[in-house]
Nucleic acid binder design. Structure first.
Lengths: 160, 160
DNA sequence: ATGATCTCGGATATCTATTGTCCGAGTTCT
DNA sequence: AGAACTCGGACAATAGATATCCGAGATCAT
């Protein structure tokens, strides 16, 4: 079970965007994070499709969060990048083989699928309670309150 | 985020093995579940390496659970097949780019990594409380108590 | 004791999905 | 009106999972 690598980039991008009211181009985010520009852009496109960020085209364009950072959960970001399909998909093994159960008696999902779904719900619930604003605050606290001001300052800097 | 498809096969195999004290060959399990024989064998090898099942070679050999089914958690099976690496891996983006934080000040994991780890812990905790015996009981209950007796009867049948 | 048969185990191709990249359409500012 | 900069989707390369096969080893029957 492996999550897309782009989730990390997307979450960092959202945290960074939460520090700017002005649009930030994808290339700028890639430069700040030290990530591949083209691929970073791809993740931002996914966020845009999901409605988490809004895009402005043309000169002085870029991406902005569409909602307050406190109202965007980490779960939304993960789902936007990694897809919202559950990690476990039941192939209905119980219906196959010599002891296959007829589909009519399979109203409820398989017990194994139920257990996996419950685990995924616990995972989702944990991520739903983490907001971008909370992440930004935690990152800031880890650096004794210097990280986010530094980001704001760097974003305000005109591209040399 | 997608889990290996073999997890489903492995869990069903464990539930089936919990109904037999005699060794069951991999080919037999594949036949019962309607799965590809060669690939099913591969999953059982992984379970064997993890110590969840024991193997007996030669004629009338096969696989057996090494512990009571009530003491084997679904989490162990998932880890044996899908690997025990966490779904989210931090690339330490905070150390990169123009605002990169020096490694010496990165004693704690990144706040984003912490949130993801907490979610994964919630997921693991949920699966750790599900035992193979519990799954067998639930599957049995879903079929009004006919499923597991049917499996025992089928396993006792000599291969024509 | 010996042979034959059946078992697992690891090494080996195929294939899908993720990763990574590029260029065109559209918009904004000058 | 022109030019430069932006996003957006379409296009290769790569890694991992999927699926398979054959050899090593043990057991049972003879």
């Amino acid at each position: 079970m492996k999550m897309s690598n782009g989730v990390e980039w997307a979450l960092h991008s959202c945290v960074t965007l939460s520090q700017s009211r002005e649009p930030v181009p994808a290339a700028r985010l890639a430069e700040l994070h030290g990530t591949a520009p083209a691929y970073t852009a791809k993740q931002l496109q996914a966020l845009s499709r999901a409605g988490i960020v809004g895009s402005t085209m043309g000169q002085s364009g870029g991406y902005v969060l569409t909602r307050p950072a406190s109202e965007i959960s980490a779960l939304e970001v993960v789902r936007a990048i990694d897809g919202d399909e559950p990690a476990y998909r039941c192939t209905e093994i119980r219906q196959r083989g010599p002891l296959g159960i007829p589909a009519e008696r399979c109203a409820r999902p398989c017990a194994i699928a139920r257990a996996m779904a419950a685990a995924q719900d616990a995972w989702s619930h944990a991520l739903a309670q983490v907001s971008i604003a909370g992440l930004a605050a935690d990152i800031d606290a880890d650096s004794d309150g210097t990280a986010m001001p530094d980001v704001r300052r760097w974003l305000a800097t005109t591209r040399n």
